[in-house]
């Protein structure tokens, strides 16, 4: 298998990497670039723990080939805070105890950010359906939904 050389942009930074043609973007992020914030919960797009955005679209990085990152724009959880300033969602998740084990949290935050960019005033039901692809086994989702709404309100008033 011939490796590919890929030039891409991750969290605004130019990044180059080598990957196998069949290597998922998630493996590239985690194993080659040490961006381990995206997690592999299933590898089959069923849990959302590996959520990133690819050219502005929310995707599971386990269902994207690293090769497809060529000249793309990728954002990951590592790019969510601005310097030492947490994103309102990140703050709301801490303040609202919206995670217990925290392993699904990066994916949920990336997904929730994508939601609020598209819909700044979602109903609870819209949040729940948007996040249906992000499994959380600890919280029962209750505090996650509440935290997203807290952040949404803060972002609307900003």
């Amino acid at each position: 298998m011939k490796s590919l050389h890929i030039s891409t942009t991750i969290n605004g930074d130019p990044v180059e990497f080598i990957c196998d043609p069949d290597e998922p973007l998630l493996d590239v992020l985690r194993n080659r670039l040490h961006l381990t914030g995206a997690k592999e919960g299933c590898g089959t797009g069923d849990c959302g723990a590996c959520s990133v955005t690819l050219n502005g679209r929310l995707v599971c990085s386990c269902l994207v080939l690293g090769a497809e990152a060529q000249r793309a724009e990728i954002t990951t959880i590592e790019g969510m805070a601005e310097g030492d300033q947490l994103h309102p969602l990140q703050r709301a998740f801490i303040d609202g105890a919206a995670f217990q084990c925290g392993v699904c949290t990066p994916g949920i935050l990336v997904a929730a950010k994508a939601l609020l960019e598209k819909n700044p005033s979602p109903t609870d039901e819209e949040v729940r359906y948007w996040l249906a692809g992000n499994l959380c086994r600890c919280t029962g989702y209750d505090k996650i939904i509440a935290a997203v709404q807290v952040a949404a309100a803060e972002m609307r008033s900003a």
Binding site: G45, L58, V59, L63, V64, L115, W130, L131, A132, G133
Partner: peptide, 9 residues
């Protein structure tokens, strides 16, 4: 078809 993430692709 699939989750929001899957919809993106």
């Amino acid at each position: 078809i699939g989750s929001t993430q899957v919809q993106g692709r």
